[in-house]
């Protein structure tokens, strides 16, 4: 299957020649359509830089990022790429430019030259999908942080992207708002959207189908959540913790009680504990 997004030997440097930091040092990665990918890694490992390169916000210092075959270095293709791959930042305040929820959602398609009737349809549909009906006239800057995150997603959905990239979009959300944003992502994923999420929350990572672990600007580890979390020694070296269910399983395994190293979610842990309990009872 052809890659939807292909990354080849990607390098990215911040700053100028005299004083620069190499944030990405040779990253290669293929992302197929409809994937749910989590990018994790310690602070400064290049996660956010990679996310910004994937959505064309940053252009490679060397190497190549292609979306549907078009290079993000190609200025003529960039408008199309940014409409295809929508990016949601950690502080959406920085990306709001209008004074009402509906204007904010309309802003992207307006800039793409979408006809007015179609804009109205998209705005209504995007606002509905993120559950913000009735809030069309509120000022984006006065929304709660959970609402801001959902508005940022709606603004991207109105561009009808094939992929959403979220850069620590849940980091400052309260637990409820985080839960509702994650449920929204799962729903979009089930509807066929490609989801790429940068996060420090390991429980969020267990929702993804594939995990990429970044370390010092390179990919250190990749695989399904159960495969990646099975490498707990390596993860510790990368400054990453285990999700609670896996941490409990490892703790019990160290005491000689094996439930299986592939346990990463609470549901799976409960299932195995119950089986053992009833088997003994």
């Amino acid at each position: 299957m052809d890659a939807f997004i292909s990354v080849r030997d990607l390098h990215y440097r911040y700053g100028n020649a005299g004083e620069s930091i190499e944030a990405l040092r040779g990253v290669s990665l293929n992302i197929v359509r409809g994937e749910y990918l989590a990018i994790v890694g310690p602070n400064g490992s290049g996660k956010s830089t990679l996310a910004k390169c994937l959505s064309g916000l940053l252009s490679p210092s060397s190497g190549d990022v292609r979306v549907n075959g078009a290079s993000t270095r190609d200025a003529a293709a960039l408008v199309g790429i940014r409409a295809t791959v929508g990016m949601v930042l950690q502080n959406p305040d920085n990306q709001f430019v209008t004074s009402s929820v509906e204007d904010e959602v309309a802003f992207g398609p307006e800039n793409l030259g979408v006809p007015p009737a179609e804009i109205r349809r998209r705005v209504a549909s995007a606002i509905e999908r993120v559950g913000m009906c009735g809030q069309e006239l509120r000022d984006p800057h006065l929304l709660s942080s959970g609402e801001k995150a959902r508005l940022a997603v709606a603004a991207m959905l109105a561009m009808e992207p094939q992929c959403l990239v979220l850069d620590e979009a849940t980091a400052t959300l309260d637990p409820r708002s985080r839960g509702s944003l994650l449920a929204l992502l799962t729903q979009l994923y089930s509807a066929g959207m490609t989801i790429i999420t940068v996060t420090h929350h390991m429980t969020e990572v267990t929702r993804a189908k594939r995990v990429v672990v970044m370390e010092r600007g390179q990919i250190a580890l990749t695989g399904a959540p159960a495969e990646v979390f099975a490498r707990d020694d390596a993860l510790k070296g990368y400054g990453l913790a285990l999700p609670p269910a896996a941490a409990v399983e490892r703790g019990l395994a160290r005491r000689g009680l094996e439930l299986g190293r592939d346990v990463v979610t609470a549901e799976e842990l409960v299932r195995r504990v119950v089986a053992l309990w009833e088997g003994e009872g």
């Binding site: 309260d174 637990p175 999700p243 504990v273 309990w277």
Partner: peptide, 20 residues
């Protein structure tokens, strides 16, 4: 209060609801 318990607390509750 519109909050959630810590993840470990939720896991423990799950287990208790399943008879553990």
């Amino acid at each position: 209060c519109g909050l959630t318990v810590p993840e470990a607390t939720e896991l423990a509750q799950d287990l208790r609801e399943h008879g553990i």
